[in-house]
Design a protein around this nucleic acid. Structure first.
Length: 217
DNA sequence: ATATATCCCTGTTTACATCA
DNA sequence: ATGATGTAAACAGGGATATA
């Protein structure tokens, strides 16, 4: 990535994508973000262009494109003086230079949008994967909790079978109290429990690494 | 306040190049 | 050779703004 590309990349923020995209992308450039008065273009409406005069549309030469690209790299907007100077240097109509810059800006914007889309997609995918991992971990922990509670019950029942030891032995009601105080109580691990779990999980999203539908496709 | 000129953006058309 | 496809040059229309 060269310096120009780096600057372009840095000038784009995700939050800017949907809010006055281009103007905010280039606050340092152009005249919309500045108080500097815009220069007026000379009248040129009636004049014939190469295309309108019946001439064939010609691709620009590599040298012409190179100079245009280098100018675009330094600034995306085109003032009247620069346009005229460039047109003179390139042997083109100023209108052609203006059109080239317009098209170039459109291409640049499309490229930036594609990059932002790609970045957001990657971010989304990583978040979904992490969510799946956490949900799987939660399931495992709840299963562990069930086993612990079962073991607890077995111990209590075993003590009762051995005879009335003392009043200090835990009662079933205490066990239930403990369950109710637990943020992940047994009350959740019931037929309703599974519904709760899958309620949080988007339809068809992965668990244990399974695929999920890509909403962007 | 209004008309006009100009700029820019967005979408479309057109000409050309490339490839199967 | 030719039709499909992609890309770049050019155009059209409309919004925004400066100026007469």
């Amino acid at each position: 990535m060269n310096q120009q590309q780096t600057e372009e990349h840095q000038s784009v923020q995700i939050s800017q994508l949907y809010n006055g995209l281009y103007i905010q992308m280039l606050p340092q450039q152009g005249n919309l973000g500045e108080s500097k008065p815009r220069r007026r273009r000379k009248k040129n409406r009636g004049s014939e262009t190469e295309a309108s005069s019946g001439g064939k549309k010609r691709k620009l030469t590599a040298a012409q494109v190179h100079l245009l690209e280098s100018n675009f790299g330094s600034e995306h907007k085109l003032e009247s003086e620069r346009k005229d100077r460039l047109a003179s240097e390139l042997g083109l109509d100023p209108r052609q230079v203006a059109v080239w810059f317009q098209n170039r800006r459109a291409r640049w914007k499309n490229k930036k949008l594609e990059e932002e889309y790609s970045n957001l997609k990657k971010l989304h995918e990583s978040v979904v994967v992490e969510k799946c991992r956490l949900e799987t971990e939660l399931l495992k922990l709840k299963e562990q909790l069930i086993e612990v509670e079962k073991e607890k019950e077995r111990v209590i029942m075993g003590e009762r079978a051995d005879g009335p030891l003392s009043s200090s032995s835990p009662s079933p009601s205490m066990s239930m109290e403990a369950m109710e105080m637990d943020p992940i109580s047994l009350g959740e691990i019931s037929p309703l429990y599974e519904e709760d779990v899958f309620y949080y999980m988007p339809e068809n999203y992965c668990i244990y690494g399974m695929e999920w539908p890509n909403p962007y496709l």
